[in-house]
Design a protein around this nucleic acid. Structure first.
Lengths: 194, 194, 194, 194
DNA sequence: GATGAATGAGCTTTCATTCAT
DNA sequence: GATGAATGAAAGCTCATTCAT
């Protein structure tokens, strides 16, 4: 039986499964290869080294979230709606990728400084879109115009991140998406112009 | 010249310095022993294993923050004031312990799941005090009474944590304490009853 | 534009260049294939395995030296002249093939015992011609008749080899051929009948 | 039963045996450790890395030869005698260390460029003593005063080296030391003043 | 004949922990 | 109590060779 997914994707998907199920430090290249159904050496035809796999795992899924956000920014008109849909989108992607959620919220954070910096660089693109929304809302008067944008961004991202991490730490036992309206409310209140 | 600090404390202090300066993955037991001025084997007279050192490092300083918070809860009367002073207190401790800030916000997060869970257990005591403040405020009508406490707690802690991490990631180049009023404002707005 | 050299020769020439420029341990089959302008697999249509390429490289050029020597033995009459022209010939070939000189004096010596023994077997043909010259000279009275031929051969070949290796190790910075008369003198003195 | 040889020497001796018996490329650190009767990790308490072991092996025995030569230079008066005893000494050490002979003449030559250069650096000390003898003999008139010293050195060393290598390649089946007088004769004739 | 994607065996080094002194 | 020499398990990556196309 042939698996026609291109090997690159096969390996990334395998890496997510292996990391989520075994933990970052137990995700050996040989385990990923086995899960992907390829030889160890094949990995290195598609990735420079192990770090490259991990970065690709993150960058791959993160770009989905980022692209959706770009679409949202284009299609929604009010800043409030944009931010609201951003939160929704972020929760949606993580809630629908149980393995990726574990990888991104827990396991990948155990990586060394070099890898973390590359992950942060990828994250930056996303956070810059968030900044864009916030600034636009402050200019339009929807959001509190005297906020410090960096702090507001930290509040929005920190809150989302903490809520998802807590959910993952609790083995994803409750419905993350059901929390969305309340999370939106909590965050939007904090940003609201008075 | 003898160092009269009991060895237990000597080792904890050494661990903080070594981790902060070398990073989690470069903080070998032998390096900690050297910094502490004791033999490698001596470490094991005071700690069960390496993990035990790291947990003690975290628990040690965390108990300072927690104790201060207990005092704050006792002495302040309004929930708003308690929360406000909690934020202040949290920022203060981290801002005054550059090494500990690095260790707690960056390095210790690279530890494995087992260690992270023990860290979370220690954190729980602190977060329960936070819950206490929030519930009290909701009951008293100072805070939005229809909030989900767990989400509110995630918002408060996630925001604080993200802001401090960003500050550490930026090499602590700006004045963290100067941000306190704006952070309080941002968080309290989100919790405020309407 | 097609390269009409038969692929066998193309690959040998490529191997010499690749080994000389990258060193024995960095001369991967894929690199040789690339330099030869053929696919990796094509190599195995012309050579049994990697060792076979290396042996062919050596044997190929060595047969040039050996054939010249055979011609010299036929055309010269005195043993002294034969030996003298042999040294000249050996220096000439190496001095005019910078890449081959590196490969033969330095790189190929890093090969394992099995390959070295095969190389020695090839060398044997050449050394037997040398023996022939020496014995003839001893019989004719030109050379010291009580020498041990094996030692004399080692002296002649060891001296030549060491001088060329030294020249290659010095990046071929000086004129090897200019040394020829003095080398002849040094060697012939050692062999001379008293 | 305790082995009281300091571990450093134990490991070097083990390395010589393992390399001689298994070949350079089959001399894994674990094999050396086993032969030395220590754990793999213990090796790294005494040597920086594998290369360091190999260099030490060579440098260790080479310094014996070099020191003997220094003594010879001091105690003999004529250059001829010095050279004669140098050859004798060189043959003696190798003939009495079958394993080291294999290692030095065959196996260590398979090492990579970096290691080879370090080996050459060690050899340099020995060759400089040889130069000293040659120059002294040329000045005193014992040796041909118009020789090129570098070539003469290559002749002496190349001859010795080739003879020993041949002996090793022939599994040390004949008596190397018995050849000494003839080798001396061969070399000294080449150097002799006319 | 020619290709090149896929294979998978093999090894150095680190470091938490122990235990004889 | 204190020492520090010794332990030994564990994993990322390369590259010669094959074989389906």
């Amino acid at each position: 039986m042939k698996n026609d997914k291109p090997k690159y994707r096969q390996i990334i998907d395998a890496a997510i499964v292996v990391i989520a199920e075994n933990g970052y430090h137990q995700a050996q290249v040989s385990k990923i290869a086995k899960q992907a159904g390829v030889a160890d050496g094949t990995i290195y035809l598609y990735f420079k080294n192990k770090e490259d796999i991990l970065i690709s795992v993150f960058s791959d899924k993160m770009s989905v979230i980022t692209e959706s956000l770009q679409y949202i920014i284009k299609t929604e008109s009010s800043s409030t709606a944009k931010l609201s849909r951003m939160i929704e989108n972020h929760f949606n992607v993580l809630a629908n990728n149980a393995h990726f959620a574990v990888v991104t919220q827990i396991e990948l954070r155990q990586s060394n400084k070099a890898l973390r910096q590359k992950i942060n660089a990828i994250l930056k693109g996303y956070l810059m879109l968030l900044d864009e929304i916030l600034i636009e809302g402050m200019v339009s008067g929807e959001f509190n115009p005297v906020m410090d944008v960096r702090l507001a961004r930290s509040m929005v991202f920190g809150t989302i991140d903490e809520i998802i991490t807590t959910w993952v730490m609790n083995e994803q036992r409750y419905d993350l998406l059901a929390l969305t309206p309340k999370v939106k409310d909590l965050i939007l209140r904090g940003l609201q112009a008075t």
